[in-house]
Each structure stands twice: as structure tokens, then as C-alpha cells.
Amino acid sequence: MERSEIFDIAHLRHPIGAPVAPERLRELVGWLSPADGARAVDLGCGEGEWLQELLLAHPGTTGVGIDHMLPASAARRTDERGLSDRVRWIEADAATWDDGAFDVVLCVGASHAFGGLDATLGAVRQRLRPGGQALVGDSIWEGTPSDSALAALDVPADAYPDLAGFVRAVRAHGFEPSFGHVSTLAEWDDYQLSWAGSLVDWAVREAPTAEDRAQALAAARGNRDAWLDGARRELGFATFVLHDVATDVRD
């Protein structure tokens, strides 16, 4: 199985692609205020739920979703919601793709595409028009990570900041948070157990070959074990609505 197929199946029941509940996603999107005719881009859009919720909340906005492994389910849900004429899905590298400046830039859970939070904020800044808004979400440490957490995730201790470090990085790039959400343990459990569970369900009921079944089960077990054996209660996730304050837009 291709990696994109595994991720598509894993997110079947949790298409948000981050440990954020649907009501929290809508609350975060509700803090964005694009004017009619605004353009939005979602960098590393995955299943496209963040961008679609933005378009549903703001009927005068159009959007572009960028991901190097774009699942077919994103376009399908776009059709079901009547958004097909307002969104384009483009399979491309979000780190190098460029189509000018946007009024709103979304990037949630996709910092791996840019090489970390600092580079992600730089990419958001590059693609945001002066005075625009952004919504950025990324992993954080809830405290000093243990050796078991680092081993389970296979990352160094400086892979993620703590919450205060996240805010410092945001401000260093000329942004100011207007609203933020730190994912709860329940949101994390829902996300991780749904991720693994969707793969198990597909492997047992729908896998066309024994090899596909084995690959799906292996991916489910690996992800679940990493969460339960080390990352749980240590790996966090924060999402912020950001305003560009580096540019004085009052004049």
C-alpha cells in the first residue's frame, strides 16, 4: 500500500487530521474574518476539513488546498457540501508551491512539510498578504519530554516547543495571536484511537489482499503503540488564530 492510501484510510472517521474536535475547529475558524472576495490557502491540507469549514463559514471566500498526497475524499466531501465551485485541490509540495499572496493562510499539523515550526511560520508569512490572518496548529511538549516519549516518537527533545515557545515563535515572525486552543487529552485520544481503529476496521472488513491487511494492521499497531507507550500526556497540540502585526495596515 502507498503511504497516501494508509493516511486516507486512517482519517476516514476523523478527517480533521489533527487532535481537534469538530466544534473547536469551527470555533477557531469563526475567529477568522475574511472580506467578501478573499482568497484562502491551506498548506498541507490533508483531507481539507479546515479549508472547507472556512468556506462554509464565509460564503464570499474561495480557497486552494495544497498537499503532496491529496486524498480523493477531500474532493468528494467538497461535492457533497456544494463547495466545488469555490475550491481547488492541487497535489504539490506545499513548501515550494507559490501562487502569490492570500488573505488567509491555514497550516495545521503540516510543519513536517517545511522542516519545523519556525520554517512553517516563515512559509505562512511569505504567502500572506500584508494585514492578513493565519491559522497555524502544531505539536508542542506539555512539559519536559521523557526518554520514553522521545523514543516512541523517534524525535529529539527540541523537535517541538512548549506552549510559551510556540507563542514566542509566532511573535518573532510578526504575528499576534487573537485566539488559541490547546487540545485536550480526550481530543488526542479520539484522534489517535480513531486513526488506528479506522485502519483495523478496514483491514478486517475490506482489505483486498492479505498483504494489504498486514500493512494496514502494522501501521495501526505502530501508531497506537507510539501513543500509548510514550507520547500520551506528553505530546500536546496548539492551534492559534494569528494577525499580521508586522505590517501597519492602518494607513
Rank of each mutant, 00 (worst) to 15 (best):
G46W: 04
A216D: 04
P130R: 03
T209Q: 10
Y191G: 02
V124H: 09
F166G: 06
A159I: 15
V41F: 11
T239Y: 00
Y160G: 03
G165C: 09
V170K: 12
Q126N: 07
G63E: 00
A75Q: 12
R221Q: 06
G115I: 03
L228V: 15
D162P: 13
A214Q: 06
T247S: 15
L217E: 10
V241D: 08
Q215Y: 05
L199N: 06
A38K: 10
L56E: 12
R224K: 13
W202I: 10
A151F: 02
G48Q: 02
W188T: 10
Q52G: 00
R213G: 06
R232F: 11
A164P: 02
S111P: 00
P208F: 08
T209D: 09
S148D: 12
A72Q: 14
L43S: 04
S4E: 13
M1H: 05
S198N: 15
A74D: 01
T209S: 14
D67Q: 13
W31A: 05
A113F: 07
L51H: 00
W227D: 05
G63C: 09
L135E: 06
V249S: 12
A75D: 08
G174N: 09
V170P: 02
W202S: 08
D93P: 01
D103G: 15
R232H: 15
E5C: 03
